[in-house]
Design a protein around this nucleic acid. Structure first.
Lengths: 256, 256
DNA sequence: CATGGGTGTTTCATTATTCGATACCGTGTG
DNA sequence: CACACGGTATCGAATAATGAAACACCCATG
């Protein structure tokens, strides 16, 4: 693993409930040497990717990230395209809706909306990277995304997260085929107990899926009516996003 | 310069009008070796900080940046605090307003609003890093920000950007003192010809300036009335931002 | 006031990585 | 065809990263 990767990986330890991380904590989380970790932290901070809370001396994500995100968003408006669509879907369904992009061999959440209308809610950590084999989002990408991502996910050893996580290669391939045929993915407690999810991809210029929208719902609340409604919303939402991004829905995609 | 810094510096070559950069271009821009630059690009891409346009094979900023920005914004809402304030100021003034954070020894733009009401407008590149000695934002930070940033900017060799850029140490110190006394900074064609700017800091918990709001105006349009209006808007805006961030206006700050 | 936890800093020799030059392949374009 | 570009591979030399260890500091807590 190169130095750059080691340093950048440190940034991945941040999440919503872990907004500031101290040195000792970083050492624990990353398993690296104290001096080395600190050198990396300092260098990241020098480049504005981290900054130190002057009070506690803990580290938090820095302003450079905001600037870069703004630059990307300007030339490649992704959040601003996904935001309204996801918001509308969440409002209409009354369920949490999230959008993620393929990033290497995991999914990275870009936006989500939680309508907060129910007592029991899906707990969702936007900073968590979603594995391809164990989430509705991931399955949708495996079915319609770039081949190399699929190959990799198939070849790799797969971790089990919840009672029903699919680990066996043959089962996973079956799931992917099924998703390809349906046009949407379904994950029944693959990643989180008591949660069922539906996912659907949206596409880039070349008709390859670049991201997904997914709706996770507590199992107890899932009904046939909701299921139908979710799939319909996903269809509309993903079509809208694909269109806004100038993408192309591939001819073999089963839903309009 | 460490490997991490070299790699991260590559990201700074992106800007609004340079959203995608190919390998050869990167080599030219960074002045590094082709093989090395590519290794860095690949490693950045592996971590989601870059992604490749599948068509042109050029690189663009990747989705990881969006995710990290979202994480930071969630725990540390800066853009969402600055956004409404800056928008309101821009609407009220009819001039471009931008907010920037201190990042090391430069200012990094976080948000800006351009009301687009006039024929002649300030051309503003949000991805550009603003030098401390030659911008209204920078002067405001030098006057009220952390000491080490000031020391560094004073000690360093200063580049000249426009006819009036202040380069001499004594002149700069004088400007800083003046800014400290007034509570706002004024830059008459220090960074860009024909542009005059007013800037004011907002403060963090410890009463040290962490960022600025600034209003650049074409010289031809500047009047006494506008000047007064700008300063008043800055005062209100910066106070609001400081308050929202839980910051403290230091006792020696000359404006309420 | 000693203790322990935390952070931050420095040193140093060893090792592993990175570096950069060069050359080469394939592709698309003028 | 010549040219620019992206991508690859190799290889010795130079550089940078590494990890261990010791120390300073702060602030809680006992």
């Amino acid at each position: 693993m190169g130095t750059i990767t080691k340093a950048l990986s440190l940034l991945n330890h941040f999440s919503s409930d872990r907004a500031e991380i101290g040195l000792a904590n970083f050492v624990r989380l990353s398993g690296g040497d104290k001096a080395t970790v600190r050198r990396h932290l300092v260098e990241l901070a020098e480049n504005g990717f981290l900054e130190q809370n002057p009070e506690t001396r803990k580290y938090r994500l820095g302003p450079a990230i905001l600037r870069l995100a703004a630059v990307r968003e300007r030339s490649f408006p992704m959040r601003s395209v996904l935001g309204p669509v996801v918001d509308a879907m969440a409002a209409s369904l009354g369920e949490l809706v999230h959008a993620a992009l393929l990033q290497g061999d995991v999914m990275s959440t870009v936006y989500y909306a939680d309508p907060k209308v129910h007592g029991t809610r899906v707990i969702f950590d936007e900073s968590e990277m979603l594995p391809l084999h164990a989430t509705a989002s991931g399955l949708a990408i495996l079915a319609f995304g770039p081949e190399d991502a699929t190959d990799y996910a198939i070849a790799q050893d797969r971790q089990s997260f919840a009672p029903n996580t699919v680990v066996a290669k043959s089962d996973l391939l079956h799931l992917v085929r099924q998703t390809r045929a349906q046009g949407y993915s379904y994950a029944d407690q693959y990643f989180t107990s008591e949660i069922q999810s539906y996912g659907m991809p949206f596409f880039g210029l070349d008709g390859v899926a670049i991201g997904t929208i997914a709706v996770p719902v507590p199992k107890a609340r899932m009904t046939d009516a909701l299921r139908r409604q979710i799939i319909e919303e996903l269809r509309r939402g993903c079509a809208a996003v694909t269109r806004s991004l100038g993408g192309a829905i591939p001819p073999d995609f089963p839903l309009t």
